[in-house]
């Protein structure tokens, strides 16, 4: 296959995964959250237990009017959903799925600095919600934007530190390399790093219990207040795509990626299974825990996660040097 065709095919597959996996996670959230709350969730759309609910939602959003408020900063307001969404698509290019029946690892493009690339892409996505908050011309959005800025800035540090500790243990920044170098005893050594990365990732995505910027009872919908129609759907897609990227990163960095029986043939299936498992944990955390207050969010980041991440880096250094 020629180079250009190969690149095009990979881009299309990544785009396909980017458009379908968040929807699967979203449907799982509808049903899992519902059953955890002793109810059943969507049942009508699509006949069998409402499997087509998100498809119906997509159609609904597509035919809605996207209103721009008169007091909004027009270009900033209209660009914000794209700035929030595209970085996750870009990040998905570098995340590996695992060996596919001996054919080599399924990945968009294996970068030597894959980890840094993904982290950098995720940090650009922060700007999207911030632009939405500032550009809406709405006091609640403004407050939400400030909360977003503080929260996402605070939690980037523990996330990068925890990811760095995983890279140190593997000796490479390439995501394929890190997953390949996995050994089962890493689960014990990297446990604090796993917890820190997962919690910091949840806060980066503004998922409950860290959704103080989007707190309904306080801020209407924070930075997303003035958004409706397709733009709102883009923000929602960005949230669920973020969950997929976070789950994939956690799997590849801390849970061994495609480690498991028959890894050569079914490695990609193991990775997908673990991604589904971590996404379930993200959904579970949403249902089980109340929202953290804004000052509690900051305390958790600076007084708990950063020291824990630094301790993990120290531990990893000792293990590597030893």
């Amino acid at each position: 296959m020629s180079e250009a065709l190969d690149v095009l095919l990979r881009c299309l597959v990544v785009l396909g995964a980017f458009l379908t996996m968040p929807l699967l996670v979203g449907q799982m959230e509808h049903k899992a959250m519902a059953h955890m709350q002793a109810r059943v969730g969507p049942m009508a759309a699509g006949g069998f237990h409402g499997w087509a609910q998100l498809v119906a939602d997509g159609v609904k959003f597509a035919q809605k009017e996207s209103i721009t408020p008169a007091a909004a900063d027009r270009r900033v307001f209209e660009l914000a959903p794209a700035v929030a969404l595209v970085p996750y698509l870009v990040a998905m290019v570098a995340i590996p799925l695992g060996p596919f029946f001996g054919q080599g690892v399924l990945i968009g493009q294996d970068l030597d600095l894959g980890l840094f690339f993904v982290l950098a892409a995720m940090s650009v996505g922060v700007l999207g919600t911030l632009m939405g908050g500032l550009g809406s011309g709405n006091k609640y959005s403004y407050l939400g934007g400030m909360r977003v800025a503080a929260q996402l800035m605070s939690y980037e540090l523990p996330m990068v530190l925890a990811a760095a500790s995983a890279a140190m243990l593997a000796g490479t920044l390439s995501l394929v390399g890190i997953a390949d170098a996995f050994e089962p005893w890493w689960l014990v050594v990297q446990l604090p790093g796993l917890v820190v990365f997962f919690v910091a990732g949840l806060a980066e995505l503004q998922r409950p219990p860290f959704d103080a910027p989007l707190a309904d009872a306080e801020l209407v919908m924070g930075p997303l207040t003035e958004y409706g129609g397709m733009r709102f759907a883009m923000f929602l897609l960005a949230e669920y795509a973020g969950i997929v990227v976070l789950a994939a990163l956690t799997t590849v960095l801390f849970l061994g990626g495609w480690a498991g029986p028959w890894a050569e043939q079914l490695g990609w299936a193991w990775t997908l299974l673990k991604i589904v498992g971590v996404s379930f944990l993200v959904i579970w955390a949403r249902v089980a825990y109340p929202r953290l207050r804004e000052d509690q969010v900051n305390v958790l980041a600076w007084k708990v996660l950063v020291p824990l991440a630094l301790a993990q880096v120290t531990l990893t250094t000792v293990v590597v040097v030893w």
Partner: peptide, 20 residues
């Protein structure tokens, strides 16, 4: 990538935060 991570992801966010 460090430029993107630090400058775009953090410094500009800090600038906007200070603005706000």
């Amino acid at each position: 990538w460090v430029q993107v991570l630090v400058y775009v992801g953090s410094v500009v966010v800090l600038v906007i935060f200070a603005l706000m």
